[in-house]
């Protein structure tokens, strides 16, 4: 924990590496990467356990429950588990494991966590409508030249740049 943190890799080098991982997914299993789909799969399962009647009525959860595959055998859930393990091990090996709250200099830890939760919730709604997130739409659909994915990329970046000046206090 107290080892000095190594500098990050060159972003272009890491990006090419990530691209090869994505290509590997296409080549091996005929599909790309994902993240929000794993959350959707897990949420469908939780909804079914907590409120079975209401979950069965939701056409959104129905889509994830129809295949009858429990979340621990869902491809994206297992992949995202790998993401967490890979990220954790990589951070540990590079001396970057830190129990901390990353935040702007003017923000309290508690406020930062509230904004993180709100941001996560907002992305949840956005990802449901867009049918994916930065992984499943931007990276995967982007590399496949899907029209909807490029619309998603442009809309997300445009909105982020429009909103960022209003939230300057969060990060500067």
């Amino acid at each position: 924990m107290s080892r000095p943190a190594q500098p990050y890799a060159d972003p272009y080098f890491a990006g090419v590496g990530l691209g090869l991982v994505l290509l590997g997914a296409f080549v091996l299993v005929g599909r790309g990467l994902g993240a929000s789909g794993a959350f959707a799969s897990a949420a469908s399962e939780v909804a079914t356990v907590v409120a079975p009647a209401q979950a069965a009525k939701s056409p959104y959860f129905a889509r994830y429950l129809a295949d009858g595959v429990p979340p621990w055998r869902d491809w994206l859930v297992v992949e995202l588990l790998g993401v967490a393990i890979g990220g954790g091990v990589s951070a540990w090996l590079a001396g970057r494991m830190r129990r901390t709250v990353e935040r702007g200099p003017r923000l309290s830890g508690r406020t930062r966590l509230a904004f993180a939760f709100a941001g996560g919730g907002t992305m949840g709604l956005g990802a449901v409508l867009a049918r994916g997130c930065t992984s499943g739409q931007a990276l995967t659909g982007g590399a496949l030249l899907s029209l909807g994915s490029w619309v998603f990329i442009c809309a997300a970046f445009a909105a982020a740049y429009a909103v960022a000046p209003l939230l300057r206090r969060l990060w500067t």
Binding site: A84, G119, L170
Partner: peptide, 25 residues
């Protein structure tokens, strides 16, 4: 829906400073 979802997602991205995949890391 993907245009609207992208706009909402982009706003959430700035609020959280992370996206779903990177939040796991």
């Amino acid at each position: 829906p993907q245009l609207a979802g992208g706009v909402i997602f982009g706003a959430g991205f700035v609020l959280a400073g992370l996206c779903p995949g990177t939040s796991c890391v």
